[in-house]
Computed example of a mutant assay.
Amino acid sequence: MRIDIWSDVVCPFCWIGKRHLEAALEAFRSEHPGTEVEVVWRAFELDSAAPRHGERGDEESAAQMLSRKYGMTLTEAEAGQEQMADRFRELGLGYDWRSSRVSSTFDAHRLAALAADHDLADQVDEALRRAYFTNGERLSDPEVLRRIGVRAGLPADAVDGMLTGDGFGDRVRDDTEAARGIGVTGVPFFVFDGRLAVSGAQPVEVFGQALEQALVGRQP
């Protein structure tokens, strides 16, 4: 079974959804030993116009971005971010929303694509999310991306070549076009075996049901 997941590494619901899917997968694998499940991460930029590193030094905080985008007061946006941090803590995750700064994730997605070719997709995905949410780092910063890639086990020369060139950019754009082609307007978005779609950070039980339905659909 294959699960394609469209996600952005600065999307809080994407990390929550990932944890819920992981819990559902753990139960599914115990009930169906021998059933192989491949998880494929697909790129989706929530804000393709977000500034890239070096373009400006006044990047918005996540709360400021939400306030501007949805027309709420900054106080309301900050309260929402604190509620999100509470949800993160329930899952053993950290969210320092006061330090987070919104910037382009295009190069982060390129790094993730490189990692997928080296069977390190999940390690890099986790490191990118932790860098943004927990450590308040800018994922458009080449030094941050280089450190994440090398620490995850990617060859340093491959990471450097990707960061100084345009490698894997086409793959990021292809993922975006594929998402548009199936009507994806928000993330996380999960497609089980190319047939069954689940949108959003659904509860563990919903992902468990999706896995069972996808398995039944594979039967002759």
Rank of each mutant, 00 (worst) to 15 (best):
M1W: 11
R2V: 10
W6A: 03
D8A: 04
V10I: 08
C14W: 00
C14N: 05
W15S: 06
K18L: 00
K18F: 00
E22A: 07
A24H: 12
E26I: 03
E31C: 15
H32E: 15
P33Y: 00
G34W: 05
E36N: 08
E38A: 11
E38C: 07
V39I: 15
V40G: 11
V40Q: 10
W41V: 06
W41H: 14
E45G: 08
D47G: 06
D47C: 13
S48R: 14
A49S: 15
A49C: 10
A49D: 15
A50K: 03
G54E: 12
D58P: 07
E60C: 12
S61V: 07
S61F: 03
A62T: 15
Q64T: 03
M65Y: 15
M65W: 14
L66W: 00
L66A: 09
K69E: 12
Y70F: 14
T73N: 12
L74C: 15
T75M: 13
T75Y: 13
E76D: 14
A77F: 01
E78Y: 09
A79Y: 12
G80P: 03
Q81K: 04
M84N: 05
M84Q: 09
M84F: 05
A85K: 06
A85E: 09
R87M: 13
R87K: 15
L91N: 06
G92I: 06
G92W: 01
G92Q: 08
G94C: 05
G94F: 12
Y95Q: 02
Y95S: 06
Y95V: 02
D96M: 07
S99K: 02
S100N: 03
S103M: 13
S104W: 00
T105E: 02
H109Y: 08
R110E: 08
A112L: 15
A116E: 15
D117P: 01
H118Q: 10
H118A: 02
D119Y: 12
D122L: 03
Q123V: 14
Q123M: 09
V124S: 07
L128N: 15
R129P: 02
R129S: 09
F133S: 02
R138Y: 06
R138G: 10
L139N: 00
S140I: 09
D141V: 13
V144A: 11
L145P: 10
R146G: 06
R147Q: 12
G149P: 13
R151A: 09
R151G: 05
G153W: 14
A156T: 06
D157H: 05
V159T: 04
V159G: 01
G161N: 13
G161Y: 04
L163Y: 09
D166I: 11
G169T: 01
D175R: 06
T176I: 07
E177C: 04
A178Y: 11
A178C: 13
R180K: 14
G181V: 10
T185D: 11
F189E: 01
F189Q: 07
F190L: 05
V191T: 03
V191L: 12
F192Y: 06
R195C: 13
R195M: 11
L196P: 07
A197P: 01
V198P: 01
S199F: 00
V204M: 01
V206H: 09
F207C: 04
F207S: 08
G208V: 00
Q209I: 01
A210V: 01
A210G: 09
L211N: 06
A214D: 05
A214M: 11
V216G: 10
R218K: 06
